[in-house]
Simulated assay, not measured.
Amino acid sequence: MNPQLPPLPETERLSASVIRILGGNPGKFTLQVGRGPRRLLIDTGDGRPSWIQSLKNVLMSEHASVDSVILTHWHPDHVGGVKDLLKSSPGTRVYKNSADDSQLDIEDGQRFRVEGATLRAFHSPGHTTDHMALVFEEEDAMFTGDNVLGHGTAVFEDLANYLSSLEMMSHQFSGRAYPGHGPAIEDGPARVLEYIQHRSDRENQVIQVLKSAKPPPDMEQADESRDLAGWTPMEIVKVIYQDVSEDLHLAAERGVLQVLWKLQKEGRALGDSTSNKWRFM
C-alpha cells in the first residue's frame, strides 16, 4: 500500500537538465527537461491554474520556452493542462502515443532533442495501452511515467503486458528513475526489479490460495452454498490482505482479478462466470 509521505516542493531542480513542477494532485509532477532556450516538458498535470503559473515562473527564470510536450499516457492528471499550456505557448508541439487529431503521434524509439537532453521514447504498455516511458540518454536515466512510481506500487490495466514492460524497462537504463508521481529514485533499475518481484510474490500468494482445499478456519462460513473447490476474488483478498483495512479490499480485489486473468490466459487457472469462483488447473 502507498505510505503517507511529506509533500514535495512545488518546483525543484533535480539535475542540471531536469526541473520538477507540481502538476496538480499531491505527489503528481510534470518534468521540464533541457538546459537551453528550448525545453521539453513531460506531462501537463490535471489542469489546475497553479500548475501553469508555476511553469511560467520556471520558464521566465530559465529564459526558456517549451518546444514540445510529451504525454506519457492518456490519464487526466497527465493531459489536463494541455489546453492551458497551448494558450500560454501556442507554438508548442504536443506528442502522444495513439494521438488524437490535435496531437502528433509518438513512435517507439523516436528521439526528442534539445540542448542538454535527448529522450528516446519507449513504448511500455501495462498501466495503460498507450503508456510511453522516456530514456534520458545523457543521464542514462528514465522517465517512467506511471509504470514505476516514487513511492508505493502502480496500478495497471493488463498484468501480463505490465510485467513484460517492466522487464524490458529494467534493461534500458542504469541510473535514476524520474516517475510521474513521487520523488526521483536513485537506482531506477533496482526499483523496477522490486516491482517485478512484488508482482511475482502476489501471484504466488494467489496461486497458493487457489491450491488450498478449503478456506482457512477463521474465514466466515455464512454462505452455505460455498463451493470449497473454488474461490471468489474477494475471498482471496480476505486471505492475502487480512492485515489490511477492509476499506482497501475493493482496490485489492482489482489487483487479484488481474492475477487471475493472467493465470487463465496461461492455462493455469479457470474461472466460472456464473459463480465468480476460480480454481487452479
Rank of each mutant, 00 (worst) to 15 (best):
K265A: 02
R199I: 05
V33W: 03
T274F: 14
M168A: 15
D46N: 14
R35P: 03
F29S: 14
Q208D: 15
K238I: 05
K28Q: 13
L119S: 07
H171K: 12
S65Q: 04
V135L: 13
A269H: 02
P76E: 05
K262E: 12
P217H: 04
L257W: 00
I196D: 07
Q32S: 08
E235M: 14
A160I: 08
G24I: 03
P49H: 02
R35I: 11
S212G: 12
F143C: 09
M60C: 09
K28N: 15
N161E: 10
K211P: 09
E203S: 12
N147A: 11
G267C: 00
M1D: 08
G81K: 01
G126N: 04
D140L: 07
Q172P: 03
V66P: 06
V66G: 01
S273F: 02
A141I: 08
S102W: 10
F156K: 04
V155K: 05
L86E: 10
T11P: 01
T30F: 12
L260H: 05
R268G: 04
Y195D: 10
E62R: 10
T72I: 01
F29C: 10
E253P: 05
L31K: 06
V79K: 02
V82K: 10
W278F: 08
M132V: 14
A190S: 04
G81T: 05
E137M: 12
P216F: 15
P179I: 09
M234Y: 06
H198I: 01
A117Y: 01
G109K: 04
G145D: 06
R93I: 00
A99H: 06
L41A: 06
G81L: 00
G81R: 05
A251S: 14
H63S: 15
T92C: 13
V206M: 01
L263S: 04
S68V: 07
L248H: 11
L71M: 04
Q172Y: 10
K96R: 15
V256K: 00
K238H: 12
T30E: 13
H198W: 15
S245M: 07
F112C: 00
Q4H: 09
V259G: 06
P37Y: 11
M281T: 11
R268D: 01
A177N: 02
L257E: 07
S164D: 14
A117C: 03
R48P: 03
